[in-house]
Design a protein around this nucleic acid. Structure first.
Lengths: 212, 212
DNA sequence: GCGTGTGAACCTCTTCACAGCG
DNA sequence: CGCTGTGAAGAGGTTCACACGC
């Protein structure tokens, strides 16, 4: 497998293919065609083949792709064969709901620990984990700095949470905050933006087709 | 304002501009330049001007954009001047956390009501709202079918929840499920995919630059 | 025959650079 | 002079259609 320049859209689709393949595997299917993957993911079969051919030749002409082999290959491309642990910063309703919902069936991610800076919460339980002080974050990252942090704090404390994480050596952050966060170049920050999704949906149901 | 063909990426950015403008308005700023908006949203000033020029000429050469006027115009484009109510289907941890976190500061969206099909939950409170039976959904949509539904159910019940919503006349759905849902052509479905975001982040911190 | 892998055409979005207006 | 709005160039991604291998 030869690594190539990254396209986020392609990586996103690979993630979807992996999810499809895991479900197919559970159903006991051994082979999938690009057409089947395409239908499952709502795109064209040509797009699927194009995505996969960027990284290698995983299919067999006339039959399709071996479910297990392709899954292994995609996980290798994504780097998710042994996914990094995920920590949650902020033990409010969102943070605890995430912890509670778990990450099963998503490809091996697990919520490793949860942190908050409210003394009233520290030591209490959230699901099966005990809420730790945010001061402990640096200790967790000292052991393994290849973790993903989910920021689920409220009320404008996102930037502070981010800086604490970056200070501790964190390189990947998924934020539920509304505020856009400032991070160093080498730290990857992504957002779950419910309100943007709502805007897109609103536009979709209300768009006025006043063309000309 | 003349409507043009839609580009989702552009709509997404408009949503970001609107958020920036609301914050600027709160800070009492009257004028913003494309450069300021660009810096806030992490893109180029040319991209901002291009996005806005698609819909009209909102700026003044030499000075910039009037914060209030531009916000009004963007909300008009998005259709979010009077945002539709949002309902939540599934009063589990995610559903209740969303209800609990509210949608303040996001441009006027409010969680109108929450539903579940578990008799043990119906009638109980979730935040300030009483959990209603999913059988009631059709009544809500009968009064106003221009609503957005958030699907926050667990364990593979997403498709059933969607069908119930579609049956009731719902046209816009935001799903937190992992499973890809099947919906009629005229129903817009979007997803909040935490596990895909984690995959993208994992790939980002682990990508091997084995170029050739 | 069937489905993959891929050159080539196509299309969409982004960036550049500057004319034009306040 | 400063900043917008936009033609033109460029980059990137998608679709088409078919040669090739099973």
């Amino acid at each position: 497998m030869i690594a190539v320049k990254v396209s986020e859209k392609s990586i996103r689709r690979l993630s979807h293919y992996a999810r499809c393949l895991r479900l197919a595997k559970l159903r006991g299917e051994l082979i999938m065609t690009s057409q089947q993957l395409a239908t499952n993911c709502g795109i064209s079969s040509a797009a699927v083949r194009r995505d996969l051919s960027i990284y290698g030749e995983f299919g067999k002409q006339g039959s399709g792709y071996n479910v297990n082999d392709l899954l292994v290959n995609i996980e290798d491309i994504l780097g998710t064969t042994n996914p990094p642990p995920v920590i949650i910063v902020g033990a409010g309703s969102i943070g605890c709901a995430l912890m509670d919902s778990g990450l099963d069936g998503t490809g091996g991610y697990i919520y490793d620990s949860i942190f908050d800076n409210d003394p009233a919460k520290i030591g209490k339980k959230c699901g099966e984990k005990i809420i730790q002080s945010t001061d402990e974050i640096k200790n967790v990252l000292e052991v393994n700095n290849e973790i993903i942090a989910v920021i689920a704090v409220t009320g404008g404390a996102g930037q502070q949470a981010l800086e604490n994480l970056v200070q501790a050596g964190c390189k990947a952050i998924l934020s539920f905050t509304l505020e856009p966060l400032r991070a160093p170049e080498n730290v990857e920050v992504r957002y779950v933006e419910v309100s943007t999704e709502l805007d897109v949906l609103t536009h979709s149901i209300r768009r006025k087709e006043r063309v000309n």
